[in-house]
Amino acid sequence: MTCTLTIASNTDSEKVLGTRYSAVSLRQHVEERLETCESVQVDFGGVFVTQSFVDELFGPLILRMGPTVLQRLVFLRCSEDTQAILKLVFATRIRDFSSRQLDQRAVAN
């Protein structure tokens, strides 16, 4: 089953979503959908986002679940700027996840 989360309908009328605070409740919505749905479509239509907002929205998911969570996420109606920010955040957090895995292995050994 595929679920959809529309960012714009879960926020106030603000067009730019920038603060980390404004992403926290949305992350909870993503997490709830990931628990019950095979894949989650996240619709960014009508909003502009910052790197901090996107990091607060998806960063903890990557750090907990690793890069495989990306295979269950689809992004709808992203502007080119939003795509660039999503790419930056995901690539950075996957790198963080990988380096932490290496650190944990080093400690275990």
């Binding site: 992004f75 700027d81 920010i85 999503l86 790419k87 995901f90 690539a91 790198r95």
Partner: peptide, 20 residues
């Protein structure tokens, strides 16, 4: 060029992400 600014710090620009 906002894309150019963010891309400078991207460690893996070719990471596959599903955009529709």
């Amino acid at each position: 060029n906002f894309i150019e600014i963010t891309s400078r710090y991207n460690p893996d620009p070719d990471l596959p992400i599903r955009f529709v």
